[in-house]
């Protein structure tokens, strides 16, 4: 007792290795940003290491006073899950804040555009108006093509 049974060890190794490969594959397909992949790769590596290196797991269990060594694996995995969840809550908070700013900027720009259109009469005259007139507000809209960021480009080039 206190050691990993061979069957559960095999399951743990296969599971951790599968997770590692899956994360790598997602990064390769650009489905996962490296920023978020790193923490997953770290988790998967540690879990794989503990699954293979039985002595290490036993020693870890002993340090934390866990009687049954495999429970230490669950303990580590659960700790990772908590850290990841917190990490994602923070990421979601940041995204919410950024999308708020984007929504506000969009509303302001649309209002400015409608205001220009009203002043110039026809909607078609807007572009000329932006080029010709100095705008009252510090930041100017450039209707040039190079102002558009090729957002989807990297993904489109690969698969």
């Amino acid at each position: 007792m206190g050691q990993l049974d061979h069957r559960i060890q095999i399951v743990a190794i296969v599971g951790a290795a599968g997770l590692l490969l899956f994360v790598l594959e997602m990064v390769r397909r650009r489905r996962l940003l490296e920023r978020y992949a790193l923490i997953w790769l770290f988790c998967a590596s540690v879990l794989l290491g503990l699954a293979i290196w039985r002595d290490g797991l036993a020693r870890l269990a002993e340090t934390f006073g866990i009687a049954y060594a495999p429970n230490a694996l669950f303990f580590v995995a659960f700790a990772f899950v908590l850290v990841l969840l917190l990490h994602f809550s923070a990421a979601v908070s940041r995204l919410a804040d950024q999308s708020k700013v984007l929504a506000q900027r969009l509303a302001l720009l649309e209002e400015r555009l409608r205001d220009q259109e009203r002043r110039l009469g026809a909607p078609g005259a807007v572009r000329r108006g932006l080029d010709g007139e100095p705008l009252t507000i510090d930041e100017d809209i450039e209707p040039d093509d190079d102002a558009i960021e090729p957002v989807g480009a990297p993904r489109a080039t690969r698969r």
Binding site: A103, Q104, L106, A107, L108, E111
Partner: peptide
């Protein structure tokens, strides 16, 4: 009135802040 149309619901804080930015 002039109208700032937020593309989705931000809640009162985000809406009023758009007014401050304006």
């Amino acid at each position: 009135a002039r109208v700032l149309r937020l593309p989705f619901n931000l809640g009162i804080g985000g809406a009023v802040q758009a007014g401050f930015v304006f």
